[in-house]
Simulated scan of single mutants.
Amino acid sequence: MNLRSLVSLTALGALWGASFLFIRVAVPQWGPLALIEARCLLAGAALWLVLRALHHERPTWRQQGSVRHYLTLGALSGALPFTLIAAAELRLPASLAATLNATTPLFALLIGASRGQERLTARRGVGVFLGVGGVAVLVGLSPVRPDAPLLLAVAASLLAALCYGLGGVYAARHFSTVPPTAVAAGQQLAAAALLLPLLPFAPPPELPGARSTWSVLALALPCTALGFALFYRIVAAHGPATALTVTFLVPAFGVLWGALLLDELLTPSMLVGLAAVLASVVLVTRRPGTTVTDMTSEAEGPSAVASNPVAIPTARDVPFRSTRIPRSTHRKR
């Protein structure tokens, strides 16, 4: 990986790590549903406009079953996990939420093993137990008092990670031949469509101020839309295995931004828990004899969901491609 790509990967980790910060700032005034509706709608519209401007393939809704598939993926990889994370951050610090989200590859492994698609080896078993231990350390020794609301928030974060794992399996099965950026745009727009009917039942609890509104814009545009653009650029240049090493950067940046910008308390136990969770991800996703940047264990299969707020699906043995629509098809004859 050259310096330019390394900078892009670091920027991607910083953006996706910052998304937890923006959620933490905006969710008290917007509420989980309104916040995620705005995020998905703005990000999906931005991605759609970029695809159209570049004359790349956009999500197709007319093919049989495509609407149902996009709605299912939008629920599993967008509406449900995004809303669960936002609800959890009403109680959790951004740094803790970002670290809990790093358990996504662990859930993806367990899902694959239950379907007979993955082998739960001794090394991977140790990784799962290490991840569970890291979560226990984070929750038990966190700076927030471990009461019932905190435990519910932790459960919501872990359920969001499970949803990402399920979304990755579903995407690998139904979107293997669709360009990833088109899948991302369709996923975000489908999530927005699913959440829209629920808004009257859960409106923003108060009138959002300027700070929370800017946070929503930052969450939707730089963190989600621009983040996807950076991710797919890295995928195109180096493949999904290298791009998915962002898994290790997102929680680190989440902890960093929370401590620097929100004055969240950073304790030694949190660092121990973070290290345990990241080590577990290495054990689960790394094949024997490979380095971290060469990991391919599930980078192109059901576990192809980076521990980030936007579930990244890429199908096994289907290389990244960006389909350009001929300009002539856009002209009136």
Rank of each mutant, 00 (worst) to 15 (best):
R211E: 14
E118G: 02
A237I: 10
G167M: 08
S95P: 08
R58W: 00
T181P: 07
I23W: 00
G140I: 05
G112V: 13
D317H: 12
R324Y: 12
A113F: 10
A53P: 01
E118C: 01
F248M: 03
T104G: 01
L49I: 12
G133A: 08
T103E: 02
L189R: 06
P81M: 06
F20C: 02
V132Q: 05
T104K: 08
K332T: 14
L151S: 08
I325K: 01
V292R: 01
D294C: 01
A87S: 13
V250I: 07
A275M: 06
L244I: 12
V25I: 15
A185H: 09
R68Q: 11
P205C: 14
S157G: 04
L265Y: 07
L196W: 15
L194E: 09
L54V: 11
R91H: 10
A38G: 15
T293V: 14
L92E: 04
F22A: 14
P197C: 06
A46N: 04
D147A: 10
S95R: 06
Q63A: 11
E300A: 11
G168D: 10
R58D: 02
G258W: 08
V27Y: 00
L84I: 05
A18P: 11
G134T: 12
R115P: 00
L196H: 03
P197K: 10
A87C: 00
L73S: 06
L80Y: 00
A155L: 15
G116F: 14
G74W: 09
L150C: 01
G116V: 08
T291W: 05
S176T: 09
L244E: 06
V132R: 03
A18F: 10
V50T: 13
V126L: 15
G131R: 08
A182Q: 02
T224H: 11
H69Q: 14
P200I: 06
